[in-house]
Simulated assay, not measured.
Amino acid sequence: MAELIYPTNVSLDGFIEDEDGRFDWLPGDDDVFAAHTELMRSAGTLLYGRRLYEMMAVWETDPALAGRSPAAAAFATAWQAPTKVVYSTSLTASSTANTRIERAFDAEQVRALKAAADRDLLIGGADLAAQAFAAGLIDEVQLYVLPIVVGGGKPGLPTGMRVGLDLLDQRRFDSGVVLLRYSPSSR
């Protein structure tokens, strides 16, 4: 069975965007970008909320983005390859190939996707990930912790629930970003 992995960039105080909805403080580090690309290459399916999907779709819809560098081209290729499932009540059509829209998160449907998949699934969007956490579907959390405190905003991890985590691995990047990999524990 494939695993459902939740990777996200967070500030040191745990936010994916600041109080103004900005995330312009995310890393521009080539090594961090390469790590994201490698993770993307491992995925067969991406599960996204609407906002994250719309932000990431440019990796397919804007060819100039891939033309910026070999690293950008590699990420664009890796992002375009997986099947995408977008959970949205407002989208009526996708702007990318190999993408389907679902109106609501269905835990049983995701369990079936995991059971049938031969490659891992990545889930993106804090609200969507919180639903997967609540359903016990997350197999791994990958937090790219950035060396910045933003003081508030949208949390990267679910609020209002307790989830024990066991550290699997850690990696420090030259930029000061630290990747922390965890699996949910039975604590």
Rank of each mutant, 00 (worst) to 15 (best):
G14I: 08
L39G: 00
I123A: 09
D139Q: 07
S186K: 15
T83A: 14
S42I: 04
A34I: 05
E19M: 09
V85A: 03
D139M: 05
R50A: 06
T77E: 15
S69H: 11
T77Q: 14
R181L: 11
P158F: 13
L143W: 01
E38Q: 10
L137I: 02
Y144G: 01
L165V: 06
M40N: 05
E19W: 07
A93D: 08
Q131L: 14
D127Y: 03
M56Y: 12
G160S: 13
Q170K: 14
I5V: 13
S175T: 01
L4H: 00
V110K: 10
R181V: 03
G67E: 07
A104F: 12
G152E: 15
R41E: 15
L26F: 11
A132Y: 14
G152R: 11
A130S: 13
D13A: 10
D169F: 03
H36A: 13
G124P: 00
E102T: 03
P184R: 08
E19D: 13
R22D: 12
L47T: 01
L137S: 00
Q80N: 12
V86S: 02
V86N: 02
F15E: 01
D13C: 07
A2I: 02
G125M: 11
R119I: 07
A116I: 12
G124H: 08
V178N: 00
S183E: 12
M56S: 11
Y144F: 14
L113H: 12
R181M: 04
L39A: 05
P7W: 06
A34F: 01
D13G: 03
A66G: 11
V32H: 02
D13Q: 09
E60F: 10
V32T: 06
K154F: 08
L179C: 05
S94V: 08
H36S: 05
F105T: 01
R51S: 14
Y144K: 02
L143F: 03
M55Q: 09
S11C: 02
A132P: 01
A107L: 11
Q80E: 12
Y144C: 00
V58Q: 03
R172G: 03
D62R: 00
V150Y: 06
S175R: 01
R187A: 14
V177P: 00
D62N: 08
P7F: 04
T83N: 10
R51T: 10
R119M: 08
A134M: 04
L143E: 03
A78H: 04
S42E: 12
I101S: 02
A107E: 05
D169L: 07
R162C: 06
D13H: 07
A97N: 12
G125D: 00
R181Y: 06
R41G: 05
V85W: 07
